[in-house]
Design a protein around this nucleic acid. Structure first.
Length: 860
RNA sequence: GCCGGUGUGGCGGAAUGGCAGACGCGGAGCACUCAAAAUGCUUUGCUCGAAAGGGCGUGUGGGUUCGAGUCCCACCACCGGCACCA
């Protein structure tokens, strides 16, 4: 294999005029570190401001391909705005609390801090090598007490406002690990992702943030983001909040002093409510059962146990038959006065609406399924065969084309067919509502209920309050002290932060309560009010709390007086461009929007939406699937060693639209490297001096250069980075041609084009661009060289290609003066031999002329 | 089931209602070389034709228009989210 030796020797010889990404990276990285070209804190800086933010990473090891794509795309935007003369705030931090650190700590018997900060150091070094243009002076970590102190402050502010509260609720419980699991930790088969145990429901007292108070605003304010956020994310958020309009109806209960309220979107069908169903796991069901017959009590207890043993996956299986038991209790339908039976069934959810429904089996599939299974009465109250203004049922025609008369319409018998009547129709069997349409009936019944005090218009949401308690060590301690008498005492602000204790002597293994409960020195404190013995709340906060306001902390991460400075927030926030994965489309973004509105209500910020624009980058896939360590996906470090930082960055940008995912196998980092070498060689070949007079340059190359200058901004701002790269490639190819077979390397247009290429490439390939800039005779850094203004005189074409179509098909083309008149162009078109041949003896019907580019001759 | 999105060569993808396939990958051929690598050049949607020149082509079927990948209607396929939410 002596050929390879020869090869290496040859490469070493060629070093001087060859493109060597290793050399370039090693040369420029320390120079940038010293220059700090991306510092953004100078108060005297007069440039207009922009805030570009990448979703901060979780330090779970070194950076991977997904990071490489996301941060390349965010960095292109950032560097673009800098070239446009903006002072861009582009900070970086780490979302460094969370379960993986704790699990790693348990596995290795170390402190989670060790693992976390070692990974941060590694990612930081990788980010620098990857040339992401961060302002490193603003680095933050959410696991630093200097950061999480302000989570505690936020919690206390929310507690003061009644937005943080405790309640009992059913949570996912892992009976093996003895711990609460987040919904995401429960596998689709209903088992724990860690222990493999079947997850059950358990009732625990937990801390919640009252996000449901903000449901309307969170929903309505999405309209402001229309067009600036991906339609998909807006739809997902709307879906998640899930507002339903309808009515609350109060039902009296036999032998029960309190009324039971149900929520319905179809109050018009109240006359058809033939039974009531309550969620078995609701307090209401327990109350009703407790006052019932011993037999019913026993049946309820057995049923509740059965329900609690069932897994999520069983519950959600829609082919599953309905289950339920009668409670032997009766409700009184406020419209008909009928006494209707009350059942407990798990198709009704305890935490939606009021945990109870009025069942209208004739007009609801679920209620009908239930009624048919348990032989409950079905009463039709909407005649869906009757025509309704504005929504006339379509009548089928018989074979003679005659409408099938109403007599022949299907019978209104859902009990027999199993199909509920869901369409529009006229009310029947509904007393005063008879004859009305759906919308009129809803209006009328709600008026009547309101007048009688037994109901009211209402809305309800799919959104639930945000459970923030975690029985974990590696998170922000909840700043509450529990008195001996059970009183909740907020930690006084001047005692913040409540710092996590050392892990020495602590068992971090999950065991049903937070490991902090066992840190006796830490958890036992005097009651701040009277000095009696008291205990700290041992739970920590969900890490989504940390990330719900971090964008404000970046404004001055070392501020030890307050979470953030409102004056700086006025200057910089909200974030102009947020970049991150669509996996955060719901939770993180919803929580950040919620906390921003809370901070607005508290008077700390003057805006109500945190992120003015959002870009979701796609994923880097391998074989059509998400890359993962376990599947042995492509390693970023290996790719960087092989192709260089710039080639990987430009590959990410060129692979397609930023929001689309792509297969790494379909990308061509080697091709990107070739392109960069081509570009770099232009700078190497330029022989003219920077002072050269542009006007003397090759006019066609100059025109192409200025077209890129003119089109670039629009393309960048529309995130068409792949198209920009293509345009730069075209300019590189054109410049090469002029050097090799045109005016030569000394031509002014060659220098001008190469300089513009260097500036354009600085957004994608910072190392290559910087080296080109130096070869062109300039000082660093090209990153701040500025995007030049195009010369308008060079954007005017001196000739254009006109197309002649016959019936929309191109038949001839010719080069014409752009100022050619319509008549003249039409004349040329009619004289074209290709056109004459195609026309033959066909008769011309119409001639469309769009001078100077197009003539279309339409024939009969 | 409901909501959102996407369908363009062998592949990734371009295209303010006006030349479909920019740019790149891959392929083929050529130059340089003893040879290779590197680099450069030519070519590359399908199809008929020796050529000149035709025909067909943006998921399917219709429509609007002088002209549709682009706009409208219906459908199909795939991807994503939600889902016993009253």
């Amino acid at each position: 294999m002596d050929t390879s030796l020869a090869h290496e020797h040859h490469d070493a010889d060629a070093q001087d005029d060859g493109y060597d990404f290793h050399r370039i990276q090693e040369k420029w990285l320390p120079i940038w570190d010293e220059l700090k070209p991306f510092a953004s804190s100078d108060p005297a800086d007069k440039r207009p401001r922009k805030y570009v933010l990448d979703m901060f990473p979780y330090p779970s090891g070194d950076l991977h391909m997904g990071h490489a794509e996301a941060f390349a795309l965010g960095d292109i935007s950032t560097r673009y705005w800098r070239q446009q003369g903006f002072n861009v705030l582009h900070p970086i931090g780490w979302d460094s609390f969370g379960l993986p650190a704790e699990n790693a700590a348990i596995k290795r018997g170390i402190d989670p801090r060790e693992w976390t900060y070692a990974n941060i150091a590694q990612q930081k070094e990788s980010f620098k090598r990857y040339a992401v243009s961060f302002d490193w002076d603003r680095e933050l970590h959410t696991s630093d007490p200097e950061y999480y102190k302000w989570n505690q402050w936020l919690f206390l502010k929310m507690y003061e406002k009644g937005l943080a509260y405790r309640k009992d609720s059913w949570v996912n419980w892992d009976p093996v690990d003895q711990t609460v699991l987040a919904n995401e930790q429960v596998l689709p088969d209903g088992t724990s992702d860690r222990s493999g145990a079947v997850v059950v429901k358990k009732k625990l007292t937990q801390w919640y943030f009252k996000i449901t108070d903000y449901a309307d605003r969170l929903l309505d304010d999405l309209n402001q983001l229309e067009g600036a956020w991906p339609a998909k994310v807006l739809a997902m958020q709307r879906n998640w909040i899930g507002r339903s309009q309808g009515a609350d109806v109060d039902f009296e209960i036999e032998g029960h002093s309190e009324k039971v309220t149900v929520f319905t979107t179809r109050p018009d069908t109240l006359y058809g409510a033939t039974f009531m169903v309550v969620a078995p796991d609701s307090d209401l069901a327990a109350d009703l059962a407790a006052e019932s017959t011993p037999a019913a009590q026993k049946a309820f207890k057995a049923y509740l146990e059965l329900v609690q043993k069932s897994t999520e996956i069983e519950r959600q299986d829609d082919s599953r038959e309905k289950t339920g038991i009668p409670l032997d209790r009766f409700a009184i339908n406020p419209a008909t006065g009928e006494h209707i039976p009350i059942w407990a069934a798990d198709y009704v959810l305890a935490d939606y609406g009021h945990g109870a429904v009025m069942a209208v089996p004739a007009h609801d599939q679920r209620d009908l399924d239930f009624a048919r299974k348990f032989n409950l009465p079905v009463k039709v109250v909407v005649d869906t065969n009757a025509p309704v203004t504005g929504a006339i049922p379509v009548l089928d025609l018989d074979e003679n084309g005659v409408a099938i008369l109403p007599d022949d319409l299907p019978p209104l018998d859902p009990a027999a067919t199993g199909k509920p009547l869901l369409g529009e129709g006229r009310m029947i069997n509904s007393g005063p509502l008879d004859g009305l349409s759906k919308s009129n009936a809803i209006k009328k019944i709600v008026e009547q209920l309101e007048a009688a005090g037994t109901g009211r218009a209402s809305k309800t949401y799919r959104l639930r309050d945000w459970l923030i308690s975690r029985q974990r060590f590696w998170g922000t301690p909840i700043p509450i002290i529990h008195g001996e008498d059970g009183a909740l005492i907020p930690v006084p602000l001047d005692q913040l932060p409540i710092v996590l204790p050392p892990t020495a002597g602590l068992d971090l293994q999950p065991k049903g309560q937070s490991p902090l409960a066992a840190a006796t020195d830490w958890v036992n404190v005097p009651n701040p009010i009277d000095g009696t013995p008291a205990r700290r709340d041992p739970d920590t906060m969900d890490t989504f709390v940390d990330s719900s306001w971090y964008f404000l902390r970046f404004l001055n991460p070392s501020d030890d007086e307050r979470a953030f400075d409102p004056a700086l927030a006025d200057k910089w926030a909200p974030v102009d461009q947020y970049v991150g994965g669509v996996e955060h489309a719901i939770l993180h973004l919803l929580y950040a929007r919620f906390i921003t509105k809370v901070l607005f209500d508290l008077g700390y910020v003057s805006f109500t939406e945190p992120f003015s624009a959002l870009m979701n980058q796609g994923m880097v896939l391998s074989g059509g699937a998400k890359m993962s360590k376990s599947k042995g996906g492509v390693n970023l470090g290996d790719e960087l060693d092989l192709f260089g930082v710039d080639a990987i960055r430009i590959t990410m940008a060129f692979a397609g639209p930023p929001e689309d995912s792509f297969n790494w196998e379909d990308a061509s980092p080697a091709g990107s490297g070739k392109f960069l070498a081509r570009a770099w060689r232009l700078a190497n070949d330029v022989t003219s001096k920077p002072e050269i007079e542009w006007k003397t340059g090759d006019p066609e190359l100059r025109r192409q250069t200025h077209r890129l200058l003119a089109d670039g901004p629009g393309l960048f701002e529309a995130f068409k980075f792949n198209v920009v790269v293509a345009r730069i490639m075209e300019l590189v190819n054109a410049t090469r041609k002029v050097i090799d077979s045109g005016a030569g390397p000394g031509d002014a247009a060659v220098r001008e084009a190469t300089e513009v290429i260097a500036v354009a490439l600085s957004l994608f390939a910072p190392y290559t661009a910087e080296d080109m800039w130096e070869k062109l005779g300039y000082q660093p850094t090209v990153a701040l060289a500025g995007w030049r203004k195009p010369d308008p005189t060079l954007l005017i074409e001196d000739s254009v290609v006109a197309v002649v179509q016959v019936d929309g098909k191109v038949r001839d083309k010719f080069t014409v003066n752009p100022k050619i008149s319509a008549d003249e162009l039409e004349k040329l078109a009619r004289e074209s031999s290709a056109v004459i041949r195609t026309l033959g003896d066909r008769e011309i019907a119409n001639v469309i002329v769009r001078a100077p580019r197009l003539v279309n001759i339409a024939t009969r």
